[in-house]
Write a protein that binds this DNA or RNA. Sequence first.
DNA 1: GGCAATCTCCTTTTT
DNA 2: GGAGATTGCC
Length: 723
Amino acid sequence: MIMNKFFNKFKNKKNNDNNILNSNEKPQDEIKTINNENVITKNQESENDSEEKQIKSFDKYKILLDEQLNKEQNDAATWEGNHVLVLAGAGCGKTKTIIARAQFLIEYMTSAEKVQILTFTRKSASEIVERVKNKLGEKANNLRASTFHTWCMSLIRKAPDLFGCKGFTVIDRDDQLTIFRLARSSSKKSKNPLIPRPGDLCDIYSYGRNVGCSLKKSIEFKSPESIDEFDEISKIVRNYEEKKELRKYLDYDDILDVVATQFNNYPEILNWISSNYTDLLIDEFQDTNPLQWKLINPLVNKLKLFCVGDDAQSIYGFRGADFQSIHKFNEKVPDSSVLKLSLNYRSTQEILDLSNWLLGKSNLKYNKKLISNRGKGILPTVETFTNEWEEASWIVENLKEHREEGEKWDENMILCRTGFSARAVEGALIESKIPYVFIGGRKLFETAHVKDVLSALRIIANPQDDLGWMRYLLLWGGVGDKTASTAIDQITKNDSLDQSIEILKRHPKISLESLEILKQGSLAETTEECFKICVDGLYKVLENKYKNKNWEQRIKDFDVIQRLSQTTTSILEFLEAYILEPIYLTEALPKGNEDDVVTVITIHSAKGAECKRCYVLNVSPGGYPITRSMNSGESIEEERRVLYVAMTRAKDELIITRSGNFSSASSSSKIQIEDKKYERYFLSDIKDKLFKNNDHRLLNNDNLTDGSFSRSFPKPSTKIDLE
DNA sequence: GGCAATCTCCTTTTT
DNA sequence: GGAGATTGCC
């Protein structure tokens, strides 16, 4: 074992040396050549030498890696040089390559606990780990994959003193909003419409933190109209920060920033962390932003990066990701190489042709034409309807038809731009009793009834959590904002729950019952028991609050959460886990009986997903690009990429639906857009041969052929019969 | 007059 | 489901 490690260390070092040597010869070979080459290193290795080596390593490792890997994927997975970026188009096997890479590293280069994989969601993290474990068994037991946030938080929890964050609590977006609302309402100008609303304040603030720019720049980018109120907004933001500091809260951006700043300022901290790892694997690299880069950058000299991404799929610009930065990988990371995966295994060529067309219309150069390994298939269709309800019911009918032909529900995925825009489809699915899951928008721990119960747990876990107190007290009749906040002012200085309860008992408007639940909950031995006490205690109150709002459905969620709580040791850990890596209700349901379901999903959540038949909803004028995106600095091009991501999820069948009363003659797909604000509509000049056009709208005058008759006709009688 | 309850309108994307 | 406005209760 020890010998092995020595050997690996030696091996790694040797390869690094090789690469450095080569890089001195030809340092300036840029990414531009990427079209013609599969493997591009900044420093193209001399041919006879390296070509032989590559093939040798391919042979050497092939047997142990996934046999389904192609040459490009295999080259990437078994790369023996230093840092590498793998540019991979949609459907070219990114996840597969990461998995193979992890497998390769564990088998030949290092040990599982020294590999850290960073992904965007809990789902892909667990998928990767699971698949590596399936292949390697026990050897991979210590392999860790997590989101940036979870990884950073685990470092903070492991050594809170190093980061100056002892006893800090993580807050989610809702909590941020509450604090911003408070800060905003204390401003004299809170009625002024130029002062952004809490949600916008939160976005502006977070954008600035993620990009590393000033508040002023962030306002100019996100809401330029509010720049005149810069001074007042600054006050509100400072107020937010003070409240956060006082209550020892960490918001999402703090978690990354605290760790990144410490890495940059204290070499001893950096060395301690980096000595635990040899390799860092980063998925969806096109969506990393400057804050995440601030975290990774100091690690570059300490370990090996293996990044995977696709500039054409960058859809997180609103969070500060700059898709162009992927092109500067060589500049940012010295001694690095760029590899490419170019063959698409997911979709038929027709689907890729349409996707390629969309991307090609951009004035940005993505250098990307996806080529299918699967050959020809069905032409995509564009289905046009009068309104979203007809759009929805047509989709449902279509789903049913395929079901009758013997297909499973889970061969269908419905993609939408916003959570809100899926409401018609959701309604139609429920009405037709088609089982479905919705991924995107609200998560399980963000639903109102769950937050109500969790507020009790928050208080029990941390009696100084004033946001928890606020929510909890407001649940009970007769208590509003005012009563609650004055009461909370009296108690949050106490760190003992019992003391706080004693004080509140004397409060005329706060019920003894509400306090008794907290008392009982605090005596519970386990998280599960505590949760149960709180649910039971709040049952009547909640039933009353939600009686007309899907109460029967909501009760079921409590069972799910109780099950989730069984595996955690402390309440705080339990709450934190699901704030950092939110979970959708349907992900938490027991596997088995409800496995065969239609997936309804926001495109932002659908990264990496694929499905046989994909419906892309509401691709109407004003929908793509979404009208709202044109006000602020956010790019129309990002909207194009969003639609591109949606289209490239489809394996066999791509169905684009839209609605509205724009005109579209039956003979041609060209549509006329009168309204100026829709003039950038992506499908307005789509090429006929790329798709089949189906207009389901009732015939109206626009669609009638011009009729001309040589004679006129008499007006029919419009009188009622009297007898 | 102060505070709570109710009604109405609108809804980008996520850790 | 949330924010803001309005109504209604004490």
